[in-house]
Write a protein that binds this DNA or RNA. Sequence first.
RNA 1: GCGGCUGUGGUGAAGUGGUUAACACACCGGAUUGUGGCUCCGGCAUUCGUGGGUUCAAGUCCCAUCAGUCGCCCCA
Length: 436
Amino acid sequence: MIRRMKGTYDITDDIGYYKAIEKQIERVSKLFNFKEIRTPHFEARELFHRSVGEDTDIVSKETYDFEDRGGRINTLRPEGTAGIVRAFNENKLYASNISPQKYYYYGSMFRYERPQKGRFREFRQFGAESFGSNHPSMDAEIIAYAATLLKALKIKDITVHLNSLGDKTSKANFEKALKAHFQPHLDSLCKDCKNRYEENPLRILDCKVDKNHESMQSAPKTVDYLTDADKAHFESVQAYLKSANIDVVVDHNLVRGLDYYTHTVFEIKVSEDLLGSQNAICGGGRYNNLVETLDGPPTPAVGFAFGVERLVVALKENDYPLSEDYLHVYVLVMGEQARLNAAWLIQRMRMGGLMVDTDYTERSMKAQFKQSANHNARFVAIIGDKEVEEGALNLKDQQLNTEERVSFNDLYVTIVDKLTQKRSDCQDCDYKGESQ
RNA sequence: GCGGCUGUGGUGAAGUGGUUAACACACCGGAUUGUGGCUCCGGCAUUCGUGGGUUCAAGUCCCAUCAGUCGCCCCA
């Protein structure tokens, strides 16, 4: 049997969680006035090298690259921001009379990684990007947007971690200071940290093995390398968040893996026993140089990305209530003539807005009743030869456990009547009938 | 890229080298010639991820391989 590719998965029974997430994304995005944007799943490889960073793990060893028949080098997008920025520049969206331009996206990303809990090779991200404002209130809005989605999804025990890396210069100075600081301790640090020292010194700060190492306590802090303007910006972001009632933890060891981040960076984490070391459910920050790096006009920008699979884990863990599948009517058919007559009755009910299903496999009556229960059908309409002759059938209400004879002509109105009586079973709205 | 664990019907699983692969759920049929959910009866794996090996004998032991899963790195 041909099976799914490693690190991919089929959404079957869990589809309700995805629908719920997508619904809330749409709703919350409207509240924050972000517009949806959709960009291709593959781009020129060059795009990711220039934006995400040549030396990051994502680009150096995790991309899906392929050459097409025209000799072009394509890459399946490993993250969303690069493509959005490309589209922003290519479509000259910066020329809009609306500013800042606020976009959100939802879709699959691809990274060649070893799959584990909350991590896949094809995974989905929901992300947002705001272009054209360098104001701290914009940083704060982005974080508030992310936090509001989590609130809408009723996810508990989340923590927003916040830090600032400063501009290009302060980021570089800080890195230099870090290397100078850790250089004499290099021998006593763990194997991974020795690597990080060369590859990405910032990451030494959030090492789990060496977190109690003596050199950690005395390590330079990002804040000490911020310019006065950057420091003021960072403090202002915090003030706006406070005003919006969003709790954050300032975490000087928070750095982010992608090269393009400057100034504000943040991560939203759920408890570790939920997702282990994959507990970062959302990550983001400011990237004031990226638009220009990708040949657009100098444009400050800030954004975030959520891991949808991780949201699903959190939803399940929090027992997020999903509405159950159900049918209005299951039509039970016995015999060929009945089946033929049922066809137009079913079509008429469906055209009238009722959710209807029937048997297609010539099962026994008992089995059809079982199916109707499995489908969670409110009514069972029973049609056999007798019914075809009389032009009437038995309609059984499975909820009230009552049954009555109804003519074919009255079937539809009878059902609609019963559905709209005081015992409304509307599961899509809060309407519980007139009596309540 | 590295390490741990796992692989038996549609599903969950038992099986500790010996003959016919438990049990439960689901599903199908019947008892009930047209009324589900309860009850009873019956059916449902020529074979244990795949390939090779050891043995008189392998689901069980060994090797390889594939897949899944969890962790490390890294990330959403």
